[in-house]
Design a protein around this nucleic acid. Sequence first.
DNA 1: ATATAAAAATAAATCGATTAAGCAAATTTG
DNA 2: CAAATTTGCTTAATCGATTTATTTTTATAT
Lengths: 341, 341
Amino acid sequence: MKKLSIVDIANELKVSKTTVSFILNGRAKEKRIGEDLVERVTKYVEEVGYKPNSLAKSLRTGKSNTIGLMVEDISNPFFASIARLIEDRAYKNGYKIIYCSTDNDTQKTRELINMFRDRHVDGYIIAPPEGIEDDVEQLLKDGLPVVMFDRHLPKVNTDYVEIDNLFSTYNATRHLIQQGYKNIGFVTFASSQTQMLARMQGYKDALKESRFAPVVKEIVFNQDEEMIIKPMTAFFKKHQDLDAVVFGTNHVGTCGLKVFNTLGIKVPGDMAVISFDDYDVFKLYSPPVTAIAQPVEEIADNVITVLLKKLNTKGVSTASHSIILKTNLQIRGSSSGLKID
Amino acid sequence: MKKLSIVDIANELKVSKTTVSFILNGRAKEKRIGEDLVERVTKYVEEVGYKPNSLAKSLRTGKSNTIGLMVEDISNPFFASIARLIEDRAYKNGYKIIYCSTDNDTQKTRELINMFRDRHVDGYIIAPPEGIEDDVEQLLKDGLPVVMFDRHLPKVNTDYVEIDNLFSTYNATRHLIQQGYKNIGFVTFASSQTQMLARMQGYKDALKESRFAPVVKEIVFNQDEEMIIKPMTAFFKKHQDLDAVVFGTNHVGTCGLKVFNTLGIKVPGDMAVISFDDYDVFKLYSPPVTAIAQPVEEIADNVITVLLKKLNTKGVSTASHSIILKTNLQIRGSSSGLKID
DNA sequence: ATATAAAAATAAATCGATTAAGCAAATTTG
DNA sequence: CAAATTTGCTTAATCGATTTATTTTTATAT
């Protein structure tokens, strides 16, 4: 029992495959095909469970009903949740997701974009690394819809969904200042991506306002956690005077907590902590860690909505949307002013 | 500048597309094509950056170079890490991954398998929900390689990669007993999947050995965390006598910690804890939580290795492998015998 | 010089769909 | 009633590759 093709259906029913195709694609009325024939074909197709070969369909139509999703790292809880939500919405709308992790590596991302192109994905959702401008530009030039999220490429004019990064860290830092902390550090990944620059700026703005000096540590990203923890340990050993710290991402934040554990630094007794990105680690730490919660559902929802809209109005170039969402500062014990010196 | 096809290449070089195709597929020698021509074609193809249309290729050859990966929930750190590792290995071997979350929902999984079939994925990696036996059987019958992991379907004879679940919980429970705990509970998701049954059995076996009575709570899985926390809270309120608990998965474990936090139950003072699946939440909890660490890299490695082997020896039915890996009980403060009553 | 074999390249079928163009019969129109 | 139009369906081209079967050219043997 091999797989049925449209020809098998046509032969069996003694009609042409054209007719079958029209009926199956809902163009029966338009092509004025008799109601009885429509009925007969529909019923038979249903009966034998025929499903058109999507490859053949894609080859002919140029549409693959696939969306390429490129995140920084699918094993990072932030990206994993977003991926999960996007997946659900995409499947509901008849799209499949091919995903990959870029590791923020420009060369790798370039190869992956080519791989996706090769597969004829209909649309792209990208958390872009730096230096990928030209490749994205090329996609757009070729009429392929691209939506960026988490960050954007300032030189590329396309839709993106972000959060208010600058205000988020500004607000978090202000919170620490109001709690009476005076030596507030900022630890983040070294990166010139928009969201990272904005987070840094927010922190600096808040400090400047209160005439405090910024103390910043930028760590080079590395797959091996040891390579993150080591420089961070050195940093905190060197800056014993810090009484509070803002972490730029959940990953740095998590590593930071590990460092504090091994150095025996008490939170918030010795060090108040606020991290970007909320998740279980922060909620369950004791005392729980104050975190800048991104509206994950909203982000995913907006991303997929914008992309679906573009996919449905292909050709008609709609104006680019820049959607900026608000974060939520989840204030918890780790940033309380109750110093237990 | 539209996309080049093999015909364009052939025309430009005044040769037939057959020749070009043979050369591109490394069958030049076999088809005794002149070395100079091979050189000329290769060079030109390189120059203009021609890439064969993979859809057309797939349509003709029936191979899509895609692997379908079905996990329970991509946003679960355990599955996300595995997915990440599999992704890397797959891409390195020229395969792309299409993934999806089954939510342990049989009907949803069935639909997803059909979606994958429709897309002509070459192989399947599945963490199967119950009741999907027939569908998997059908895949195998149609010659499609399937590798299962995390759990398996006892009635289906195919390769799978698992861990020694029974011994893992047996060992963990024994550890608690040796530490002097006498009222040890087991909290898990209600499920008759192999790995869950084995985990339960391991716990029961250990208790039986010491003539303790099992106290088990099975919670119905729910996307909404509240629906997990509520029954669990009720359970722990009811069983005030418990002095230790083993959690069947990282998700239950995490929810359990949340419950303890709100109930004001101290770990391990009031309650010793061991959870299945190690991750940051457990490492950073204070005191850190003893956990049964699955060898994630090894699992991913074995899964993809087995699948690639099957993909490369298509047709030749190799014997089924059942790979059972060992877990690692990461003993930490949460299961220490130092009761601070 | 002719037959035979080997080397080198090509024509055409195929995968399974979509779709532009075409055609015969039924119906409407003038 | 003949011409024009509409209805209902089919023929054949196409998407871009792979692959079988075939032809042309060149080399070797007799």
